[in-house]
Design a protein around this nucleic acid. Sequence first.
DNA 1: GCTGTCAAAGTTTTT
DNA 2: CTTTGACAGC
Length: 673
Amino acid sequence: MTLIDPNLNDRQREAVQYLDGPALVLAGAGSGKTRVITQKIAYLIQHCHYEPRRVLALTFTNKAALEMRERLAQTLSALQMRGLFVGTFHALGLRFLREEGAAAGLKQRFSILDAHDSHGVVQELLETTDKGRIFHVQQQISLWKNALLSPDQAAARADSDEQQEAAHIYRSYEATLAAYQAVDFDDLVRLPAQLMRDNPEVAERWQQRVHYLLVDEYQDTNTCQYDWVRSLVHGRAQFTVVGDDDQAIYAWRGATVENLQKLKQDFPELKLIKLEQNYRSVQRILVAANQVIGHNPVVFGKRLWSELGHGEEIHVEECAHERAEAEWVAFNLMQERTMRQARWRDFAVLYRSNHQARILEQFLRQFRIPYVLTGGQSFFSKAEIRDILSYLRLLANHDDDPAFIRAITTPKRGIGQVSLQQLGNFAHQQDTSLWQALPYYLLRDDLPPRQKEALQGFYQFMQRLLAEVDQRGQQAADFLDRLVGAIEYEHYLFDRYEERAAQARWQNILDLLGWLKRKVVEDDLSILELVQHVSLITILERSEQDEEPDAVHLSTLHAAKGLEFPHVFLIGVEEGLLPHLGRDDENLSEEAAPAVLEQRVQEERRLMYVGITRAQRSLRLSWCQRRRRGREEVVRERSRFIREMSGQPVTMAVQEPDKTADDYLSELKSLFD
DNA sequence: GCTGTCAAAGTTTTT
DNA sequence: CTTTGACAGC
């Protein structure tokens, strides 16, 4: 039996070994949080002989779950990990609903609608194409769900006409999803929480099952997630949550830091353990981080310190515009890598929003710097992936109308808006789904021959697929190839897009097929058994056993949480971008405005804090005097966060104007002469 | 009635 | 750059 890692410090060891009751570990950035969780899991299983299947560890991202599993695999044997759950709230929710879904009126093979699909549903219900409005209502519904509010409760609280309308849409939205036999992402957590709350039998079953619960990034839980956690640990109260209030960056998703205080109220015996020693960054970076976060109101009061020495000064570069900024990053990456004799992977470029990656990519390519993008558009929201998945979803769940519509119209097979509209009306009259209605619709004798033929063709095609879809293992893999071949998807892509774009999309399809096929063969599953999982898993898992390539990391600040890099570039540190301020046209209501604004700035400040604390040894910030925003170019100011962190030496540099990529390159060449 | 072409517009962050 | 909307052609 392995002993506790002797490298743990006293606080960490205490956090690992404390089992007398519930524990809250306040873990500052870089204080060995993941280590504590994984060590504690190992401790529970190896030392305290917990059955692995009785231990659950919840994370927010697949990436975090994956990393945790990898680390555990270094300590635990395959047998010791068997049955252990390490995954996201949503993945556990899916597992839960597959077992208990009937109690919520869900059949076994319900569909999971992604953000795209729910957008479509809301659009239909709102009968508008106003994207802003759709987006807003969608977000409102999501917030209500995450706060565990029913449509009725939402309507009761709605304090404006717009909110009233949103609450109304919420009700129809729920009815629509029920008709589709579908849940959205929020439901994956909300329904389990509600089922456990309303159904003592179900609650009992899961409480018996969970003997120890661990929650990572606890500060990012929303009301619904907390409610579920509380139900799961009810009675036993054996759990450890790990979090850092200074890194709470998901308020916009309904997360509430108050869950930290609530925990203390609900579990008065809660043990609080603070981890303040940082093992990641040099002192100067920590000072900067502490300075910035010091401008937020103190909740728990942590002070990070490290023994890693002072480190070099933090550099702030003032750039003319975003092209210049990207050039500066690219040039510096080349220079720094050479001078420090570092690898590409030692560098990360972090930014507030995804679109900033575009221009960076251009310049990195130009300088021939290898890079990997994390975050950004998820693999599973790419059009081509959704196309193929829509067939699988429809095969698994015939009531999944969004999947039906996508499948029948992609690739084009002579069925367009009008045919669909007519079929839709018919299905609506019959109060059934499109797929179920289709054979009866085909019996009508007033159909235009072409339409009838096209619909019939699709129906028969799907029927043939249906006959084979139960196959597992290698046969399931072959089935996938046949499906993609039969709809001539490759041809469709190359027909529709330019060579390069089509190539990239086809590659995505090949990746998807590769992943699916490996999964069905390895675990001897049928496609049907896999579909639900697919939309929850990021393609990260694909590279599970692939070597991490030596490449610069490009990431949004949100996606960078939990990661660390020797050298970090944090770009676009400007007022309006970081902190990002909501658009002016937003209906900031009267007296609430200043308070709301302050809340937002505080969250942005935490985001800045997260960014700074990713850096181990060096940190470089940049901001632009001007930046393109849609059509026009706007003048920008240096972020207040730069001012806030500069109680210490900071190098401020102003970029030479009108320097071009060529200038940089020749400058670079001269370095080697 | 369906599909392809052209022009315009554009979410901050993610499961 | 990519996706969506309007319009004309088949």
